[in-house]
Design a protein around this nucleic acid. Structure first.
Lengths: 108, 108
DNA sequence: AATCTATTTGGCTATTTTGCCAAATAACAA
DNA sequence: TTGTTATTTGGCAAAATAGCCAAATAGATT
């Protein structure tokens, strides 16, 4: 893989990797219907507030979400809603996995 | 986040995380037009063969690719081609990032 | 100014991931 | 059987990630 291709795939992987964590994926899903502040997200997720803030920073740096300051709180929203399309395919993969483990049992 | 939701997002994240690595993303893209054996992929990627094998195992365990043995070689192909749809959105995110860094410069 | 709330950042530890080498395994060929 | 090719696995060290607490910052309120 030449250097250009490598850095191209590195950039692409950074975007995908940002979504490759349960909490961050949950956040993306939560933002489907509009912006939410950090404290609301924290209440729904249930980990330390600083941890939520770090996850949000990763998503923001990847370009998946954007932030807006309002008073002393910060609201996050989806920068590119197309990432919601990932869910459909992921469910398809998981469904295929379930089917396969069933038939694999039958074969044995 | 309750236990059920947690494990649901854990499963989804595993699928996405499998694609969140430059080499593995490259592999997925390579398989767009049909199956390839490990040695061919290794030649294109240029890292150790054992490393390629490990990446393939991660993609297979996630249900993204499937393997077929033919003689002494193993061919891999996309189990769920819908994962190719990710690329379009990822490019959109990267393009938005490029636009944003330009306008951010202008503002400063 | 002093205080309170919301969020981010520094610093630390535990865990996971990555990639290499060497060894094991599997299938084919001599 | 012996050797050769293709692939996987064990084991290790370096690097990256995740999550917590405490401290810092920013904006509102008293």
């Amino acid at each position: 893989m030449d250097e250009v291709t490598q850095s191209q795939y590195q950039a692409r992987a950074t975007v995908i990797k940002a979504m490759g964590h349960p909490t961050r994926l949950f956040i993306v899903h939560e933002l489907e219907h509009g912006e939410q502040c950090v404290c609301d997200l924290q209440a729904k997720i249930g980990v330390d507030l600083s941890t939520v803030s770090r996850h949000l920073a990763i998503l923001r740096q990847a370009g998946i979400i954007a932030s807006r300051k309002a008073g002393n709180q910060v609201f996050y929203n989806l920068q590119c809603p197309c990432v919601l399309n990932f869910f459909e395919c992921v469910e398809k993969v998981l469904e295929t996995n379930r089917m396969k483990s069933l038939t694999d049992l039958r074969i044995k």
